Amino acid sequence: MADALEGILETALYADDLDAAEHFYGTVLGLQKITRAGNRHVFFRCGQGVLLIFNSEETIKPPHEGALPVPPHGTKGNGHACFRVAADKLDSWIEKLTSAGIPIEVDIRWPTGARSFYFRDPAGNSLECAEPGLWAID
Protein backbone atom coordinates (compact mmCIF):
# COMPACT_ATOMS: atom_id res chain seq x y z
CA MET A 1 0.00 0.00 0.00
CA ALA A 2 1.25 3.50 -0.82
CA ASP A 3 2.23 5.94 1.90
CA ALA A 4 -0.24 8.67 2.81
CA LEU A 5 -0.36 11.78 0.65
CA GLU A 6 1.59 14.62 2.29
CA GLY A 7 -0.58 17.53 1.21
CA ILE A 8 -1.56 19.55 -1.82
CA LEU A 9 1.38 20.88 -3.79
CA GLU A 10 -0.58 22.94 -6.28
CA THR A 11 -4.11 24.16 -6.85
CA ALA A 12 -5.50 25.18 -10.24
CA LEU A 13 -8.12 27.77 -11.10
CA TYR A 14 -9.20 28.90 -14.55
CA ALA A 15 -9.58 32.37 -16.03
CA ASP A 16 -10.19 33.56 -19.58
CA ASP A 17 -8.47 36.91 -18.93
CA LEU A 18 -4.95 36.15 -17.71
CA ASP A 19 -4.02 39.84 -17.58
CA ALA A 20 -6.82 40.50 -15.06
CA ALA A 21 -5.88 37.33 -13.13
CA GLU A 22 -2.20 38.29 -13.05
CA HIS A 23 -3.06 41.75 -11.73
CA PHE A 24 -5.51 40.43 -9.13
CA TYR A 25 -3.36 37.64 -7.71
CA GLY A 26 -0.07 39.54 -8.01
CA THR A 27 -1.13 43.04 -7.02
CA VAL A 28 -4.33 42.76 -4.97
CA LEU A 29 -3.45 39.50 -3.16
CA GLY A 30 0.31 40.12 -3.29
CA LEU A 31 1.33 36.64 -4.44
CA GLN A 32 4.78 36.23 -5.99
CA LYS A 33 4.58 35.38 -9.69
CA ILE A 34 6.66 32.36 -10.66
CA THR A 35 6.08 32.39 -14.40
CA ARG A 36 3.69 33.28 -17.17
CA ALA A 37 3.43 31.49 -20.51
CA GLY A 38 1.66 33.82 -22.94
CA ASN A 39 -2.09 33.40 -22.78
CA ARG A 40 -1.86 29.80 -21.46
CA HIS A 41 -1.10 30.19 -17.77
CA VAL A 42 0.32 32.27 -14.93
CA PHE A 43 1.68 30.61 -11.78
CA PHE A 44 2.10 32.11 -8.29
CA ARG A 45 3.88 31.06 -5.09
CA CYS A 46 1.41 30.76 -2.21
CA GLY A 47 3.01 29.76 1.08
CA GLN A 48 4.59 26.35 0.53
CA GLY A 49 2.34 25.63 -2.45
CA VAL A 50 1.69 26.96 -5.91
CA LEU A 51 -1.47 28.52 -7.34
CA LEU A 52 -1.87 27.77 -11.05
CA ILE A 53 -4.14 30.00 -13.12
CA PHE A 54 -4.89 28.46 -16.52
CA ASN A 55 -6.77 29.67 -19.55
CA SER A 56 -8.95 26.63 -20.28
CA GLU A 57 -9.12 27.48 -24.00
CA GLU A 58 -5.36 26.90 -24.15
CA THR A 59 -4.98 23.93 -21.80
CA ILE A 60 -7.49 21.80 -23.72
CA LYS A 61 -5.06 21.82 -26.66
CA PRO A 62 -2.59 18.94 -26.87
CA PRO A 63 1.05 19.89 -26.23
CA HIS A 64 2.99 21.03 -29.28
CA GLU A 65 5.96 19.08 -30.63
CA GLY A 66 8.90 19.27 -28.20
CA ALA A 67 6.81 20.55 -25.26
CA LEU A 68 6.47 18.72 -21.97
CA PRO A 69 3.90 15.94 -22.43
CA VAL A 70 1.33 17.37 -20.00
CA PRO A 71 -2.05 15.96 -21.02
CA PRO A 72 -4.78 18.39 -22.10
CA HIS A 73 -6.96 19.44 -19.18
CA GLY A 74 -9.23 22.22 -18.08
CA THR A 75 -12.68 23.09 -16.97
CA LYS A 76 -15.39 25.68 -17.43
CA GLY A 77 -17.17 27.48 -14.66
CA ASN A 78 -16.15 28.83 -11.30
CA GLY A 79 -13.72 26.99 -9.05
CA HIS A 80 -12.84 27.44 -5.40
CA ALA A 81 -9.65 27.90 -3.41
CA CYS A 82 -9.19 28.67 0.26
CA PHE A 83 -6.17 30.60 1.55
CA ARG A 84 -4.77 29.95 5.01
CA VAL A 85 -4.68 33.18 7.06
CA ALA A 86 -3.89 33.64 10.76
CA ALA A 87 -7.02 34.43 12.76
CA ASP A 88 -5.68 37.81 13.86
CA LYS A 89 -5.03 38.80 10.21
CA LEU A 90 -8.52 38.12 8.80
CA ASP A 91 -9.85 41.63 9.50
CA SER A 92 -6.85 43.28 7.87
CA TRP A 93 -7.39 41.11 4.77
CA ILE A 94 -11.04 42.17 4.66
CA GLU A 95 -9.94 45.82 4.84
CA LYS A 96 -7.34 45.28 2.10
CA LEU A 97 -9.83 43.62 -0.23
CA THR A 98 -12.68 46.07 0.33
CA SER A 99 -10.25 48.98 -0.14
CA ALA A 100 -9.39 47.44 -3.53
CA GLY A 101 -13.10 47.32 -4.42
CA ILE A 102 -13.47 43.57 -3.83
CA PRO A 103 -16.77 42.84 -2.05
CA ILE A 104 -16.87 40.29 0.74
CA GLU A 105 -19.73 37.86 0.05
CA VAL A 106 -19.98 36.37 3.53
CA ASP A 107 -18.04 36.28 6.79
CA ILE A 108 -18.70 33.01 8.63
CA ARG A 109 -18.06 31.64 12.10
CA TRP A 110 -18.07 27.84 11.59
CA PRO A 111 -19.32 25.25 14.13
CA THR A 112 -15.66 24.48 14.94
CA GLY A 113 -15.30 28.11 16.11
CA ALA A 114 -13.04 28.97 13.16
CA ARG A 115 -13.77 31.97 10.99
CA SER A 116 -13.54 32.45 7.22
CA PHE A 117 -14.78 34.84 4.56
CA TYR A 118 -15.53 34.55 0.86
CA PHE A 119 -14.92 36.82 -2.15
CA ARG A 120 -14.47 36.46 -5.93
CA ASP A 121 -11.62 36.93 -8.36
CA PRO A 122 -12.18 38.71 -11.71
CA ALA A 123 -13.02 35.36 -13.39
CA GLY A 124 -15.75 34.61 -10.83
CA ASN A 125 -13.82 31.94 -8.91
CA SER A 126 -14.94 31.66 -5.29
CA LEU A 127 -12.05 32.46 -2.97
CA GLU A 128 -11.95 32.05 0.78
CA CYS A 129 -9.59 33.14 3.52
CA ALA A 130 -9.81 30.95 6.62
CA GLU A 131 -7.98 30.55 9.86
CA PRO A 132 -6.11 27.24 10.10
CA GLY A 133 -8.44 25.81 12.76
CA LEU A 134 -11.23 25.51 10.20
CA TRP A 135 -10.19 21.93 9.52
CA ALA A 136 -8.66 21.39 12.97
CA ILE A 137 -5.23 20.74 11.46
CA ASP A 138 -3.33 22.86 13.94
Rank of each mutant, 00 (worst) to 15 (best):
M1V: 14
D3Q: 12
E6M: 12
I8C: 11
L9R: 13
E10N: 14
A12F: 05
A15Q: 02
D17R: 06
D17L: 10
L18E: 02
L18I: 08
D19Q: 11
A20K: 10
A21T: 03
E22V: 10
E22N: 13
F24A: 11
G26A: 09
T27P: 02
T27G: 06
T27S: 13
G30N: 01
L31E: 04
L31G: 07
L31S: 08
I34R: 14
I34L: 14
T35E: 11
T35G: 01
R36M: 04
A37C: 00
A37H: 06
N39Y: 04
R40D: 07
F43Q: 08
R45D: 04
G47P: 12
V50Q: 11
L51G: 02
L52C: 11
I53V: 15
S56W: 12
E58G: 07
E58R: 15
I60L: 12
K61T: 09
K61E: 13
K61N: 15
H64I: 02
L68V: 11
P69M: 05
P69W: 04
P69Q: 12
P72H: 03
P72L: 05
H73V: 03
H73M: 07
T75G: 13
T75M: 13
G77F: 01
G77P: 02
G79N: 02
H80Y: 14
H80K: 13
A81H: 12
C82K: 00
V85G: 00
A87K: 14
L90P: 05
D91S: 02
S92M: 15
W93F: 09
I94H: 01
K96L: 07
L97M: 02
L97E: 01
T98M: 14
T98Q: 15
T98V: 14
S99F: 02
A100M: 06
I102R: 08
P103R: 01
I104M: 04
I104L: 05
E105I: 04
E105K: 12
V106L: 02
D107S: 08
I108G: 00
I108A: 06
R109L: 12
W110I: 06
P111V: 03
G113F: 12
R115C: 10
F119R: 03
A123D: 01
G124D: 08
S126E: 10
E128L: 10
C129Y: 01
A130W: 00
G133C: 08
G133S: 14
